[in-house]
Simulated assay, not measured.
Amino acid sequence: MSEDYKKITIEGLWKNNPALVQVLGLCPLLAVSGSVVNAMALGLATTCVLTLSNLAVSLIRNATTDAIRLPTFVMIIAAFTTCIEFLMNAFTYELYLILGIFIPLIVTNCIVLGRADAFASKHSVPAATWDGLMMGLGFSLVLVLLGALRELIGTGALFANMHLLFGDTALHWKIQVISDYRGFLIAVLPPGAFMVLGLLLALKNIIDAKVEAAAKANKEKVVVGSKRVRTTGNIA
C-alpha cells in the first residue's frame, strides 16, 4: 500500500499533474493567477473541494448505480463548493469579491469531476482522499507558481495583499524584489497568463526529456556491463 500512495503522490504532483499534463482547469488557472494571493486562495479552495468530494464519492461508491452516478457526484461537489464559498464569504470577504464567479465555478472544474469518476469511485476511502489532496496540491502549486511569476514580472513585487487571505499578520509580507520597477502590464493580463503557462509547460517537458534520457543511458550502461560480465565469465 505504501507504494500505491507513493505513486499517487508522484502522479498528482508531477507525472499526471492536472495543470501541466492533463491541462485541465485552464479557465481559473489563467483568470485568477495575476497575483500570489488570488492564486493561493483559489488553489486552497479547489484542493478542499477535491479532497472532500473524493472522500464522499469513495464512501458511496458501492451504493450508486450507473444511472445516477454522475448526477450524484455533481451534487456532492456542488455541496462542498457551496460550503467553501460560504466560508470565504464569512472570513475573507474582500478576496471572495475579487475571485467572484470562479469560486462557484469549481463545481464545473474538470479536475474535480474527473478524479471523482476516474479514481474515487473505484478506490478505497484513504486512497481516494489522498488522490484528491495530491491532485489539488499539484494544481495549486502550478497556480501559485504562475501567480508568483506574473506578479513578479508585472509589478516587480511578491506577496502583495496577502492580508486578504491571512489577516493582519500578513500586512507586511509584501517583498519589493525590483525597486523603481515601472511594471510590465501584459504579464498581469490574460495574454501574459498564456505565455507564462506555455513556458512552464515547455520547462516540464524539457525536464521530463532529460530525466528519461538519463534513465535510458543508465539502463544501457547496466545492460552493457552485464554483457561484459557474461563474456568475461565465458572466456574464463
Rank of each mutant, 00 (worst) to 15 (best):
K15N: 15
L164E: 01
L97G: 00
L158V: 07
C27M: 07
L13E: 12
S33C: 12
A78I: 02
L203R: 02
I153R: 02
T155D: 05
G43N: 07
R228K: 11
S226C: 07
F91C: 06
L201M: 10
M88H: 05
I178L: 13
F102W: 13
G114C: 05
L24S: 14
P126V: 08
A236C: 09
A31E: 10
C110W: 02
S179R: 10
I84L: 07
F194D: 04
S121C: 00
C110D: 00
N38A: 12
V144K: 02
H172Q: 08
K221W: 01
A63G: 15
A213T: 05
L70N: 11
V144Q: 03
S124E: 05
T46M: 14
V49K: 13
A116L: 00
A170S: 04
L164S: 00
V74K: 04
Y96I: 03
A79K: 08
V188T: 15
L203Y: 02
M135V: 11
I175R: 05
L189C: 06
A56I: 11
I68P: 06
K219L: 06
R230L: 13
W14D: 11
I153C: 11
M75R: 12
P191A: 12
L171R: 10
L137F: 12
F166S: 01
L24V: 15
T47N: 15
V125S: 01
V142P: 00
L105N: 02
R150Q: 04
A217Q: 13
V21F: 11
G225Y: 03
G34M: 02
F159G: 04
Y181C: 03
R228E: 08
N218W: 08
G132F: 06
S226R: 13
V57K: 14
V112Y: 00
L87F: 09
D117Q: 07
V37G: 10
E151G: 06
I98K: 14
S35A: 04
L137W: 06
